[in-house]
Each structure stands twice: as C-alpha cells, then as structure tokens.
Write a protein that binds this DNA or RNA. Structure first.
Lengths: 245, 245
DNA sequence: CCTATCCAGATTGTATACAATAATGCAGAG
DNA sequence: CTCTGCATTATTGTATACAATCTGGATAGG
C-alpha cells in the first residue's frame, strides 16, 4: 500500500460510516486485539477510520452502553475491564436469558435454521483448528444466532450484550486453553433443540454456560503498548463484514 | 440578536447538562406526557433545555439504546411505539429477569431495604390517590429499586429498561384503569421477600407481571399536537430530580 | 534527595458551521 | 380536480473550532 490514498474507497459501499467504526472497534475488542484497560483516544481512532471525532464519540458511547467500553468524564474511553464480582453478575443474567432462548426454541427450530447453525459450528471448528482470533468471536456469535432465531429482538440484543461481555471476562480471567468442548456442546444443543428434547437442551445449555464460567480464573496476561494504530488499521478495513462467512 | 436571558440558571447545580436532558426526556416519556409516535426535533429540545443539538443528539441516542426512542436515519427521533408482538417479547424477557431478582433477594432483604421499599409503596399509594402522572413512574420505579437491591448492576439496568418499555406499552395498549391492585401486590411481595418465602415471592411476582400484561389491550387514545414546547418547558426545570421524594 | 507547584501539551466536552437529505408547497399539465 | 415535477424550506448528518480539564514534567523550595 504505497502512496497516501484517502481511505474513502469505502464510500460507495458504506451507507453508514458510523456503524463501521462501531463494528470495527467491537470486533477488535471481541477478538481480544484490544484488551481490557486499553485506552481508546478519539483522535487516533478517527484518524484510522477516516472520520471525525463526532462519529467516534458516538460509537464509543454505543459501546459503553453495551458494557464493552468505559467512559470516564474528561478522561476518555477505555476497553472495559469487568471485576470478578460483575463477571458473576453477568453470568447470572446470562443463564436466565439463555434459558429463555432454549425454552422458546425447543421443538420450534426449523430445518433452515438448524442447517444454518450447523454450518456455523463447522466454521467454529475450522477457526479453532487454525487457532485464529476468530474462534473467540464465532463461539459468541453462535449464541447470538440462536437468540436471533427466537424472533425476540430484545432477547437477541441482551444475549448479544452478555455474550460480548463474556468475551471480555475470558480475556481478563480466562485460561488460554482452547474451547474444544464448547464446539461439541454447541452441536449437541442443536440436536436437542431440533428434536424438541427441551429438558436435554436446557441441561446442555446450563452445563455449557457453567463450563464457560468455569474457565474464568485469575490469569493476568500483560499487555503490549502502542499496538493500537496497527490494530485499528486492520479493523478499519474489515469493519463492514457481518455474520456471513 | 438582542440579549435574551440565557437559561443558565441551572449551571451551579448541574454537573452534567447532558444527563439533565436525558433525564427530562425520559421522565416526560415515562409519565406519558410525551406519547408514542411523538416527534422529537433536536432544535426544539435543545432550545427548551438550553443546550446545543450535540447534547440533545447524544441523549436521544441513549434513549434509543434503551428502546424508549426510535431514530430513523435522516428522519429524526420519535417516542417509540412498540408493536403488540414486541410487547409480548418484552414481557417474556421481563418475567425471566424479575424471576432472577426474586431469587436473589428472597430471604436476603435487610431491614433497611425493606423499610425503603415500604416507604416507596406509601408514595405510590398517595400518588395513586391524587391520580397524578407520577403514579405510573413510581410503579415502575418500585421494580427498579428492587433490582438495584440485588447488587447486580447489569440486572438492574435491564430491569430498568424493560420497566420503562412497559410504561410505553401501557401508554399504547393499556386500559386507563387504575393500578390499585399493583400497589397491594408490591406490598405483599416485600413481605414474602423479607420472610424468605421465596416460593410465595416468585408466585406473587409472576402474578403481578401477568396482571400488568393483562392490562395491555387495544385502546388507542388520540394524541394532541404541539404540546411539545409546553411539556418540555416543564420537564426542563425538574429534570435533575431523582428517585428521592 | 524528595516534595510541592505551576506551566505546557494533550485530550476531552460542547457549540457552531456547513453539507446532505427529506418534507413541503406550488405550478402546470392532463 | 387531481396528479406529477420541481423549487424551496426544514431538519438531520458530519466536521471543525473553541473552551474546559487533565497529565506530565520542570523547577524551586524544603
């Protein structure tokens, strides 16, 4: 990438640059490219994404409302670092929400959706095999996908939020160990849901969430500095991609 | 322009004018002074609160993230008017969340908190006697208070959100009939929680939420026009008051 | 050598200016 | 009379400018 080409290349396909900033930052946080406690200066971000501070601020506020970012007055925004206590709180809420998801979906999962879910699990498998940063994101997106299939928009939003926050929690307290079992549990859950075995589905989900929480132990990994620019330059380009493969 | 008196009277006691706009609009919506579908032009609001569009926008975005306001691109913000389908969705989620509140609080309610709750119920009673607009808000705030007492901040936020949205739903579909029973049910709930009768508490809460949902039927009341300015001029002044009496 | 104070730089908070888009109303044709 | 097309106006979307606040370091005093 020679010369100083303005990064307006995105214009034709970018109806909403604000969402691009939001999505880019969100992915960077979920995939743990940005770690809890990292500072998020408006200038730097705006530069990388090619927008003014106005849009950056609005994105940061949105992320803050979802709990991924903390905004401290006159001190700027940071990637949130939830305490152990709030981690427990988040899991308590998550369990209830996922309960509802299973309850709404058991026996009502159509073949189309089941197929989509199985394809997603396959993606998880291959991402996990490559040990890439995407496996974290994909594992979470499975739950979001499931919640969206209930047709309950509020539930989907809440599940999306707690799922994202769990990524943060694992980044802070989780063991680096792989999420092999998670992928299998996802597959089992689909089977149970499709077959209408709601008891099983509920049990599997409970166990699964428990396993995720289990992985949360103290394990503070040091973080590098000044990676921000290079990270953002990566996420600025791929920001618009959604759940699709 | 000549020197019109700036309405900066609030400065000394207003550390955060942005929150004032947010709180004022929120109350106006919860108390049904602003009704679902009402337009919320940035200029008008900014004028009334004495702030620039910047802060108004940020407040509207925040309200939108809570589901009280809908923002449509290039078309401005409106008080949200949830569909009947999404009303059902909201109640589904609310039931689960309130379940968790009861579960966390049963037998763990200290005397201080119980006292505070009983005082709140008294407020509800008197507001209901006067048939003022505050009774709507207070009924909701009971549930928010309860959720806050769990110490689970996320749960409190979610309960606050679904509670607010329920106010909207009642404004749209609710019968104008009073919420007498609700006040009594609140009192019963406190007793059950304090005594540690978690079964009872859970049952009362379920019945209570059911009763609230019951009141949601089609009953479209026409809305007046151009009340906006006068409404806002009222809420601009009283914006900073919180839960305290 | 350590501590306190103050200045300069950097960063955020808010207002305003300008650009882009949608809403409105009028004119003319059918 | 109604409908279509265009010009005007109102409102939102974004960028920039300025004010307020915080941060870090240099310097003087203990």
């Amino acid at each position: 990438m020679a010369g100083p080409p303005k990064q307006d290349v995105v214009s034709p396909l970018m109806p909403d640059r604000s969402s691009a900033v939001y999505a880019g930052l969100r992915r960077a946080i979920i995939e743990q490219a940005l770690l809890p406690g990292d500072r998020l200066p408006e200038d730097t971000i705006g530069e990388q994404f090619g927008v003014s501070r106005t849009l950056v601020r609005s994105s940061l506020t949105r992320l803050a409302s979802e709990g991924l970012v903390e905004q401290r007055r006159n001190k700027g925004a940071y990637v949130a670092s939830p305490s152990l206590a709030s981690a427990r709180d988040i899991f308590d809420v998550r369990r209830k929400l996922e309960d509802l998801v299973v309850q709404l979906l058991a026996g009502r999962l159509n073949q189309d959706d089941a197929k989509k879910l199985r394809e997603h699990v396959e993606q998880e498998r291959s991402a996990h095999a490559q040990d890439g940063p995407e496996s974290i994101r994909l594992a979470g997106e499975f739950h979001i996908l499931l919640a969206e299939m209930t047709g309950n928009a509020l539930l989907a939003r809440y599940v999306s939020e707690v799922t994202s926050r769990c990524s943060l929690i694992l980044a802070l307290y989780g063991r680096p160990h792989s999420s092999e079992c998670a992928v299998n549990e996802h597959a089992q859950l689909i089977d149970a849901l499709e077959a209408g075995r709601s008891e099983d589905a509920c049990r599997i989900m409970a166990h699964h969430i428990g396993a995720v929480q289990e992985r949360a132990h103290i394990d503070n990994t040091p973080r590098n500095e000044q990676r921000l620019k290079s990270i953002l330059s990566h996420y600025a380009g791929t920001a618009s991609r959604g759940l699709r493969p």
